[in-house]
């Protein structure tokens, strides 16, 4: 037992009082959706290893309206992760300089978002080439 019982300021719900921290918790929360999608893929690999019947059952499950709807939510959440990942990159990266000048934050974010667009197109093109 601690006889002093010092006062500890309650921190319950601290982030709900400030829009900046609400956004922070939302972008941290995208991790739940990243984990959920990794789980979907993990189940897929396990089903693939179990053979053709198991794989077909998984594919059928993916075609259900509920699954497509869930993937739309995942797409929104992880799309938001992509956006915030590069939006906060000017602060998560050590200061970058180019030709003796500090690279402005906006340029870092823009480069990242262009990289997302290019990587997405490349991945789609690759899937297209493999499957057709």
């Amino acid at each position: 037992m601690n006889k002093r019982r010092p006062y500890v300021r309650p921190m319950e719900g601290w982030w709900r009082k400030n829009p900046y921290f609400i956004e922070y918790m939302v972008h941290e929360g995208t991790a739940l959706f990243v984990a959920a999608y990794a789980l979907v893929l993990l189940i897929g690999v396990v089903r693939l290893a179990q053979g053709e019947a198991a794989w077909k059952a998984w594919l059928t499950a993916l075609q259900s309206p509920l699954s497509v709807f869930a993937h739309l939510i995942l797409l929104l959440a992880i799309g938001y992760h992509s956006y915030t990942w590069f939006k906060i990159m000017p602060r998560t990266l050590p200061p970058l300089s180019l030709g003796g000048k500090r690279v402005p934050g906006g340029a870092i974010t823009a480069t990242g978002l262009i990289a997302v667009a290019l990587a997405s197109l490349a991945l789609l093109a690759l899937a297209w080439r493999i499957s057709t």
């Binding site: 993916l62 995942l74 992880i78 789609l124």
Partner: peptide
Amino acid sequence: AALLGPMLIFITGIAVPLGLLL
């Protein structure tokens, strides 16, 4: 996840199951 996540989800969870684009 930032670079490939959205397109991966679109491909495996939406495009291929619906026969959309792929």
